[in-house]
Each structure stands twice: as structure tokens, then as C-alpha cells.
Computed example of a mutant assay.
Amino acid sequence: MVRAILIVMDSVGIGAMPDAAQYGDEGSNTLANISKQAGGLKIPNLERMGLGNAREIPFVSPQSNPAANYGFMAERSKGKDTITGHWEMTGIILDQAFPTFPSGFPNDFIRRFEERIGRLTLGNEVASGTEIMQRLGAEHVRTGQPIVYTSADSVFQIAAHEGVIPLSELMEICRIAREMLQGELRVARVIARPFLGEAGNYQRTTNRHDFAVDPPARTLLDRITEAGQKVLAVGKINDIFNGKGVSEHVSSRGNDDGISKTLEYLRRDDPGLIFTNLVDFDMVYGHRNNVRGYAEALEAFDARIPEITGILRQDDILFITADHGCDPTTASTDHSREYVPLLVYGPKLKQGVNLGQRACFADLGATIAEYLGVQWLENGTSFYTELKGENQHD
């Protein structure tokens, strides 16, 4: 029985890619800029694993003998959103980015959408979710009109007070939107954004739900389950893949809960993949340009790494990476087109191997596929043989 554990630190980028200027992200470097502005990061475990060896990060020292193997990955797909990044890790390269709507969605679509749901809407603009919730929340409560908005990402977001539009109705409204957003309007995700509270103090609840599009082809997840192994998903992984190839999933209420639920899966005996997304880095801190909060979240994750490595079995392999950037030190509140870090640790693996710059995120998926002994798709090049220890299985 062998297992791979893949933890995605959502939005923890490690430097602008060469084409970042095309996305308005020149100079973005989520990890380095946070560390510089915060006066350093207290992340001794990630540091020991070799995070500072992967790329230069202020106040994060390279190690002479890193405990893990290290490198960084370039995104080959077009775009910089969550789905694109996760899909690429599992073998899908997108030649065309999902559509975005910097001026809001077409008026004729909004009218048809309102007719379908039986309610008028508010907003239809590019906005920060927390800002638009405070600005239009009271009018929403008074009128019962849901708030619709988007961002620089390919999303159609619908916010509603749980006391005004019950969760069941909000989810049905989102399902209708997902059904209608096709063709040129086919956004990557429709997102339910429920909230509670009073005017001036509205707070999102943890009942968010993403309605994604299906992956356009079979992914690593499908290959694993077809081989009779398990894919155990933590956090929004199930939403990102629309349930395709997922054996079992559990939601999480923040990073800490996501780590705890990952540990629960690790205590089981299922061969295959444990796939975790830690969304707070992105949703709570990156999009809100909260540098201090982001730094503290990185430090909190770092503090729990010994729990994760301590519970690993001899044949387990842990992969830590990210799906894009979201630099909170820039004026933008959107994702950033960045390289992502790559740390690989296993009790039987070699240590301190410099994996360098990987050509695409799919290299990670190809490596997991080879290790689990499942058929891989056409994209990606495995680096498993570079890491394999003398006692590691073929």
C-alpha cells in the first residue's frame, strides 16, 4: 500500500512568471514580498525542508542539507485561476483561459437569469466580495435581491444573507446560473457566498460552495480511482473537479481544520491520493491584501508540518505546492501569475535533491502517477526516479 499526499497552499506563489506582465502581475512575488514586508517569516519547518533553496525569499535561509527535495513549477496553461492550476497538476493543459468579465456580465444574460430565479439582482460588477457585501448588504436584506459580482478571475459569485435567502434556495440559484453560463459565458466557477450579520457587520459563513465545470478530459484522479485506489479530497478539491474522480470528500472550515482532516485521512489505510486545498491563504488574506494575516497563516501552517510528517508511513510521499499567486502587497486584490513552490518529502526518499524549475504543474501529477503505478496522461514529466531511495519500490 502506497499513498501520495498533495497539499495545495492556495495562492502561495513564489515569483512572477515571464508572462506576468500580460496579466498585470509584473513584480508579484507572494512569498518574498510578504516576508519582506512582514520583516521575516517564522517558518522553520518549511525552511528546513528547503523552501529557501527553491527560490530566494528574504529572511528564509537556504539549507546546506534540506530535509526535503525542492524546486518550483511554471504554469503552462493560460490563466491564473484555481481550477486551471489544480487541473494542470492532474494532467490537463488549457490552451485558452476561462473568460473573465471586467465590465460585469452582459445585461441580456442578467435579465434572463433574473427571470429564471424569480428575483431581481444587485451589483453585476467587479468587486471585492467583502466590500460589496458591506456596501449592498442592507439593500439586499431589504429587497431580497441577491448580490451578483465577479473579479479578475473567471467566476460568477452570488452573495445572499442566510436569513433572507435560505441556503437551499441560494444553491438552487447557483445551479441555475451554472446551467445558463455556457459558450462564451462559460466561467470556471459559480460560487455561492452566503453571509450573516447586521448592517455594517456582515460576515461570510463557512457554507460557501463552488459549482465548477467538468474537467474536459480524464485526470490523474480518474486514473487513480479506475485503478481501484482512493482519492480522498479535503476542502474545495471536490468542487474544483466537480466530483470527478473523487472517492470521498470532506469540507473544511479554514486551514487548521483542513490540516486536521488531512491527518484523519492519514490515519486510515486507503492506498492512493489524499488531496488537500488550504483556501484561507487566498480567500481570507490574499484577496483582502492582509499581509500580516497571510504571514500568520503561513506560520500557523508551518507549525503543524511536524504533525503531518510525523504521521507519515514509510512508503508515503508528501507534496507541498500552490496553484497560483495572490500577492497581498500589491494594489491588486486578484490572483497573480506566478511560479509555485514544490517541496517533496518521504521517509524513504532521497533528501536535498534540487528539482529545479519544472516546465509545468503536470510534472507533479506525472510523478504521483508513476509512484502509485497508474496510467498517466500525455502531459507532464515524472521526476520520481530523481528522488527514489534504494529501498523505494519501482
Rank of each mutant, 00 (worst) to 15 (best):
P106A: 03
G13M: 10
M49S: 04
R111M: 11
A68P: 14
G50D: 02
E88K: 05
A20F: 07
Q96N: 13
G104Y: 04
L94V: 06
F105T: 12
F113G: 04
I14Q: 00
V60N: 07
I34T: 15
T90G: 04
Q22S: 14
D108N: 08
L94M: 13
R112D: 15
D108G: 06
P99T: 08
L46M: 15
N45F: 11
G27E: 12
N33F: 01
G91Y: 03
S64N: 13
A20P: 06
G13D: 06
G15L: 06
S77F: 00
K42A: 11
A67V: 13
E88P: 07
R112L: 02
A54M: 08
F98L: 03
K36F: 01
F72N: 09
Q63D: 02
H86G: 00
A38K: 14
P18R: 15
F101N: 09
F105V: 11
A68R: 13
N29R: 02
N107H: 14
W87T: 07
G52F: 02
F105K: 10
D81I: 01
G24M: 08
S11D: 13
G118S: 15
D95V: 10
D95M: 12
I14T: 10
E75H: 10
A38L: 12
P18F: 15
P44W: 09
I92P: 01
A21K: 11
F113V: 13
V12H: 05
V60Q: 05
P44D: 00
R48H: 00
N53I: 06
S64L: 11
N45P: 03
S35Q: 00
A16P: 09
A32V: 07
M49P: 01
N107G: 14
P58F: 02
M89L: 14
S35D: 02
H86F: 00
A97L: 07
G79L: 01
G40T: 13
I110F: 01
I57P: 06
G15D: 05
D19Q: 02
H86L: 04
S77H: 04
P58Q: 09
A67K: 14
E26W: 04
E114R: 14
E26L: 04
F113D: 06
G104C: 11
S35H: 02
N69E: 10
I57M: 03
R76A: 15
G104H: 09
P62L: 07
S28P: 02
P58C: 13
N65C: 00
G15M: 04
F105Y: 15
T84M: 00
P44M: 02
G79R: 06
D19C: 07
N33P: 10
F59R: 00
R111C: 05
D25W: 05
E88D: 04
P66E: 08
S28Q: 06
D19E: 12
N29Y: 04
E115H: 04
S64F: 12
D19H: 07
Q96Y: 07
E88T: 06
L46C: 08
S61L: 01
I57A: 05
W87G: 00
M17V: 01
A32L: 09
P62A: 03
S61E: 12
V12Y: 02
E26S: 10
I92C: 09
L31K: 02
T90F: 06
M49A: 11
M89F: 14
G13R: 05
T30Y: 08
R76K: 15
L31Q: 04
R55E: 08
A32S: 14
I83S: 08
M89Q: 13
F72V: 10
A21S: 15
